[in-house]
C-alpha cells in the first residue's frame, strides 16, 4: 500500500482529467483505471455558458481530488490558486505546478521551492511537479513536501522517461513518495517507472487522447501493477556478457 500524508492508496496509478472528449468518457476511463487520486485544474466560471460538471461523477465514485495550480507563473500566484482550490474543493491536497513558459511547460524550481515552504506551513499537502532534479527534490522534502512529482519528459509530450537516470537517483535518495509525472506515453513507460521503484505514476494525456480511453486506462492499470510487482520481486542484474541459463551442451562431449 502506498501512503502519502494521511491517505493510503491501493492503486499506484494516478490520473488526470484533462483532454478527454467528454466527461462521460473521462469518468468511465478513470473508474476503469482504478485510480484513487485524480488531478483537476481551476478556471474562472463563464457566466454565460458553463455546464461541464465533472465533479459529481468523480466524487460519487469516491475518488480523491488533487487540484493543481496550472497557470500560476510564480509562487505568489500559486499560493493564491492553492487557497482558491482549497475553498472550491474542500481539500488541502495540492499538485503544485508553476510553469512560466507555455512552450515547454517546464517547472520553475525556485518559485516551486518557495511556494512549497509557504504552502506546507499553511497546512497544505503539497505534491510539487518538478524537473527530475535530485538536489531540488531533497530541498522540497526538507521544505515539507508530501511527495515529489518529477517529470519523465514535457507535459503531454508522450516521450516517456527521458530523465530515467535522474529519476533513479531521486528514487534512491527520497524519503518521501516519488510520483513520476508528465510525459508517460505508453503503459511500458509506466511499467518501467514502477520497475525502477517509483511509488506511483501520474498519467493523463496518454489515456485521454487514446482511441479507446477506457481500454487504455486498463492497460495502464495492468502495467503499473506488473511494474510494481516486478520491483517488489527484485529484478536480476544486467550484464553485457551472456550468463548461461541452460547447462549448455556439455553432454555432447561424451559422444
Amino acid at each position: 500500500m502506498l501512503t502519502i500524508a494521511d491517505k493510503t492508496f491501493s492503486s499506484r496509478l494516478f490520473t488526470g482529467t484533462g483532454k478527454f472528449s467528454s466527461s462521460q468518457i473521462m469518468s468511465d476511463a478513470i473508474k476503469a483505471s482504478g485510480s484513487e487520486l485524480v488531478t483537476m485544474a481551476l478556471k474562472r466560471v463563464d457566466l454565460n455558458n458553463d455546464q461541464d460538471d465533472i465533479l459529481d461523477p468523480l466524487l460519487s465514485a469516491g475518488i480523491n481530488l488533487l487540484p493543481n495550480t496550472s497557470g500560476a507563473r510564480n509562487a505568489e500566484e500559486a499560493i493564491y490558486a492553492a487557497q482558491l482550490a482549497r475553498e472550491a474543493l474542500q481539500t488541502n491536497w495540492l499538485k503544485l505546478e508553476i510553469h512560466p513558459d507555455p512552450k515547454y511547460l517546464l517547472p520553475d524550481p525556485i518559485e516551486t521551492l518557495k511556494a512549497t515552504e509557504k504552502l506546507s506551513e499553511m497546512g497544505f499537502i503539497v505534491m510539487p511537479y518538478v524537473h527530475a532534479d535530485p538536489v531540488l527534490c531533497k530541498y522540497l522534502e526538507e521544505a515539507g513536501a508530501a511527495s515529489v512529482m518529477p517529470l519523465g519528459s514535457p507535459i503531454g509530450s508522450n516521450l516517456g522517461l527521458k530523465t530515467k537516470e535522474f529519476l533513479d537517483i531521486i528514487i534512491e535518495q527520497s524519503g518521501i513518495p516519488v510520483v513520476v509525472d508528465a510525459g508517460i506515453g505508453s503503459p511500458s513507460d509506466a511499467a518501467k517507472a514502477m520497475e525502477m521503484g517509483a511509488d506511483a505514476v501520474l498519467v493523463n494525456t496518454a489515456i485521454a487522447v487514446s482511441r479507446d480511453p477506457v481500454s487504455m486506462a486498463i492497460a495502464f492499470k495492468e502495467a503499473v501493477t506488473a511494474g510494481r510487482r516486478a520491483y517488489e520481486a527484485g529484478l536480476g542484474n544486467c550484464s553485457l556478457q551472456a550468463q548461461a541459463s541452460s547447462p549448455l551442451t556439455a553432454f555432447l562431449d561424451v559422444l
Binding site: 483532454k19 483537476m40 478556471k43 466560471v45 457566466l47 487540484p67 507535459i155
Partner: peptide, 10 residues
C-alpha cells in the same frame, strides 16, 4: 469578484 470552479486538467 473572482468566481472559480474546478475544471478538467492534468
Amino acid at each position: 469578484i473572482t468566481l472559480i470552479k474546478a475544471t478538467a486538467g492534468g
